[in-house]
Design a protein around this nucleic acid. Structure first.
Length: 194
DNA sequence: TATAAGATTTACT
DNA sequence: GTAAATCTTATAT
């Protein structure tokens, strides 16, 4: 039930960011298997998006995976401390990516707690740096294929309804000027009946 | 080589 | 609510 490559290679990165809500992110790192339901995403739309690392067709060793065809991980270090996990989408040469900001713990919860040095599941994976730590994702995994055995995404039949999804501007990108207010952030209000 | 700044989290006041 | 932690990357000398 892994998502196939065609799913990732859609050109509509904003639509895809929404479509990833409810999908399940799996990792199998150091022989430890963990999974979480994706509950918050942000779209980063290629070379025209001032919030994107690939804005203005900027190509560096860090951003190189974004330019490949969809279905890879783009992971980078922020503030010297946290690895942030992104899904590379779109066809080759079009540097679209979807940042996973939050997941709900599903499998391997004890291992996640251990990695995060926590006792309860509260706030275990509700932030981009937190979920990477919990799932064992490190910036050295950047460029890793999502068709491989370390990191992948499955459809487990969880489908948020429209009234369970909230939309809003992206977080922490004040530098992006007018693009900072674009409604590219999607939240799955999972477990709540509104 | 040097410098500034960051898709954040956590601990402290 | 405010600030410190911490280091790679991008950009400039």
């Amino acid at each position: 039930m892994k998502l196939n490559l065609a799913f990732y290679q859609d050109e509509d990165v904003v639509g895809l960011a929404k479509a990833f809500l409810g999908k399940v992110l799996y990792t199998n790192i150091n022989d430890i298997r963990c999974a979480g339901i994706i509950t918050e995403t942000e779209a980063y739309a290629g070379i025209t998006d001032k919030a994107s690392h690939a804005y203005g067709n900027r190509f560096t060793r860090r951003t190189a995976p974004m330019y490949k065809s969809g279905g890879l991980a783009y992971v980078y270090l922020i503030y010297g401390i946290h690895s942030l996990f992104n899904i590379v989408t779109g066809p080759e040469g079009m540097p679209h990516a979807v940042l996973v900001r939050s997941v709900a713990p599903l499998e391997g919860v004890d291992h996640m707690k251990k990695r995060r040095n926590m006792q309860s599941t509260r706030d275990l994976t509700n932030g981009p740096g937190k979920l990477s730590t919990a799932l064992g994702i490190h910036y050295s995994h950047s460029g890793e294929s999502l068709e491989g055995t370390k990191i992948w995404i499955e459809d487990r039949g969880i489908k948020p309804t429209d009234h369970q999804i909230s939309t809003g501007p992206r977080i922490g990108i004040d530098y992006a000027e007018e693009d900072a207010s674009l409604p590219y952030r999607f939240v799955y209000n999972h477990g709540k009946e509104i």
